[in-house]
């Protein structure tokens, strides 16, 4: 679906990517994690062709994204963190934007809008920040594009909206779709993503499926610490000790994304050795 080969990109004074290579496959929801300023948004922009690589290639379904051809653009939708909505009613927005996307589904859109409780007769620019975001999420999912990029989609959403988001997202996944969600709020994408990619210092630090993580690591919450040799990462919390352990028993546990992310960031070599073995 998305093929990134040897991507080099730098802003005027800052190198962001030096030879980044990664592939995002259809049929998955990716969680793209990383510290602030590591290049998650820059990667999204390179994928969409909004930024042009200094070296290397980014292609979507075999088409170079930097050319920004309409055929390629109709296969993707990006919901940026600093999103924009025009000064039009929801129905006018749909009437003039939907024809650009050949797989746009009006019934899907109606369903999502109903779930998000968005008033269709309202003007987009007069909605609250959360409503604007939900309207755009509904639109982006209804486009049924092969690639959907979401940068911090849950920012600005209240607790109820976040659970609506999860519900809507889980209903939208299809075998031909690839969804990449970049976020700092890992709790919001728990039980939603099926692959985790962590980006750090312009390269991919970690890239594995949730089931793979579940097979190799065990996530454990207890009052007493486990033996040191079994622990990859541990952290004291208000309710006890949160641990990431080597999964020796083979028994799968629920993946705690926050602990996993911290384990990857603090012990990258240990994690990579484990997953590459």
């Amino acid at each position: 679906m998305v093929d990134i080969q040897n991507l080099h990109y730098s802003y005027k004074k800052k190198k962001v990517f030096e030879g980044l290579t990664i592939t995002f496959e259809a049929g998955n929801i990716y969680g793209l994690l990383g510290k602030n300023g590591t290049g998650k948004s820059t990667l999204f922009k390179n994928i969409c062709g909004l930024l042009k690589p200094g070296k290397g290639e980014v292609s979507i379904g075999g088409e170079l994204s930097k050319l920004r051809k309409p055929g390629m653009l109709s296969k993707l939708f990006m919901l940026p963190e600093d999103f924009f909505v025009p000064s039009v009613k929801v129905k006018d927005f749909i009437a003039t934007m939907a024809p650009f996307y050949p797989n746009f589904s009006h019934s899907d859109f109606d369903r999502y809008i109903l779930e998000f409780e968005i008033p269709v007769d309202s003007r987009l620019d007069q909605m609250s920040m959360g409503q604007k975001k939900k309207a755009l999420i509904a639109f982006s999912l209804a486009t049924n594009t092969e690639l959907l990029l979401m940068d911090e989609p849950t920012n600005g959403l209240d607790i109820v909206s976040k659970s609506q988001f999860k519900k809507v997202m889980s209903s939208a996944i299809a075998a031909n779709k690839c969804i990449i969600i970049s976020t700092h709020q890992v709790k919001d994408i728990e039980n939603l993503v099926d692959r985790i990619s962590v980006i750090d210092n312009g390269s991919i630090l970690f890239n594995a499926s949730i089931s793979e993580v579940g097979k190799k690591l065990r996530f454990h919450q207890s009052l007493y610490p486990s033996p040191k040799e079994k622990v990859v990462y541990s952290e004291e919390t208000l309710t006890g000790i949160s641990e990431v352990l080597y999964n020796e028993s083979g028994e799968e546990s629920k993946v705690d994304l926050e602990s996993l992310y911290k384990a990857i960031m603090i012990h990258p070599t240990t994690i990579n050795n484990l997953f590459n073995s």
Binding site: L50, R68, K69, P70, F77, D82
Partner: peptide
């Protein structure tokens, strides 16, 4: 000047000539 608006505009599925 507005990043969001620029992104919204540039990713619209139409050619640069159009």
């Amino acid at each position: 000047n507005n990043k969001g608006e620029s992104i919204f505009y540039l990713i619209k599925p139409a050619s640069q000539l159009e």
